[in-house]
């Protein structure tokens, strides 16, 4: 029983990471109907920036804030420079650009920061396990950070004028433009936010899995699975999906398939959702009129 609870708790902790990345994916999907294959690589790059800042002597939380800001700028710049001309382009072109970004970020990360695996500091005290020994301080802290981020995103979209404008731009670009919303900048802002959330997820997961240029490729897959499970057009659904995938992964890894087939499990979840319930648990079924 104790072991089971522990598995569930650490599942929730990793699930929080997946939830953040899934949220980042959904934010871009809602606005542009694109899935950013480079999201994981961008987050890894941001995490390396954080490590560099910390090694340069900055306190953790200042480095954290600077990294989030830099990632935000990177996201905005990518949207403005690369994605902008691709708005009307066919799927192949946008998928191609995302794959190109993935390759560039992956190699540039390896180039600048080398391919050696590095440890990443945790901001939470290294005391013994608490919560009755079910979760390590970092797991609990990371979950808390994730939940705070999710709450902030929710408040931003629900209660601020800018959030409303972003939702409007994603929902109906033409009408939004007519009422004076800068739709292009809203998209760029969405990219910036997604990159920032990805960076936070990267910094939270790095102490657990260690930092190397390929760190996020598996995490991206789970985030896809989470986003699809919850419904890729539903932010809250994606978050719940992310947590669910984390728990499923941990339990199945411990009791069913073993650690070796964890990635295959993500593939199976993705396929199962796509076949059985393509809209996800909380998504709206899309009826396309022809």
């Amino acid at each position: 029983m104790q072991a089971l609870l522990h598995q569930i708790f650490s599942g929730i902790a990793t699930g929080g990471i997946y939830a953040s990345v899934a949220l980042a994916l959904v934010m871009i999907y809602q606005a542009t109907h694109h899935v950013n294959f480079a999201q994981g690589e961008m987050a890894t790059f941001s995490t390396y920036i954080a490590l560099t800042l910390i090694e340069a002597g900055l306190p953790y939380w200042i480095a954290f804030v600077i990294t989030v800001a830099i990632s935000f700028v990177i996201g905005v710049v990518i949207e403005r420079v690369l994605m902008r001309p691709m708005t009307e382009a066919p799927v192949l072109s946008s998928v191609g650009v995302f794959i190109g970004l993935l390759l560039i970020f992956n190699s540039v990360t390896g180039w600048i920061f080398t391919y050696t695996v590095k440890a990443f500091p945790s901001p939470f005290p290294e005391t013994s396990r608490f919560l009755g020994g079910w979760a390590s301080p970092h797991e609990a802290g990371a979950t808390a950070v994730t939940l705070i981020v999710l709450a902030l995103v929710y408040v931003f979209f629900r209660f601020t004028k800018l959030g409303l404008a972003m939702r409007a731009a994603a929902f109906n670009p033409v009408s939004s433009r007519l009422v004076g919303i800068h739709v292009g900048w809203m998209l760029a802002l969405g990219w910036g936010l997604a990159a920032a959330i990805g960076a936070i997820a990267g910094m939270m997961v790095a102490p657990i899995v260690f930092l190397d240029p390929g760190m996020m490729s598996g995490i991206l897959l789970y985030a896809f699975a989470g986003a699809l499970l919850g419904g890729i057009d539903n932010a809250l659904g994606a978050v719940i999906g992310g947590f669910a995938v984390g728990v499923i992964e941990n339990l199945a890894g411990a009791y069913l398939v073993g650690a070796e087939l964890k990635l295959t499990l993500a593939l199976i979840i993705i396929l199962a959702v796509l076949i059985l319930k393509p809209a996800g648990l909380f998504g709206r079924a899309i009826v396309s009129r022809v």
Binding site: L82, V97, L101, L102, L103, I104, S107, V108, G110
Partner: peptide
Amino acid sequence: KAAPGAIYGVILI
């Protein structure tokens, strides 16, 4: 060592 990936990416885009 990292160049092929980056060059692939740049050329692809």
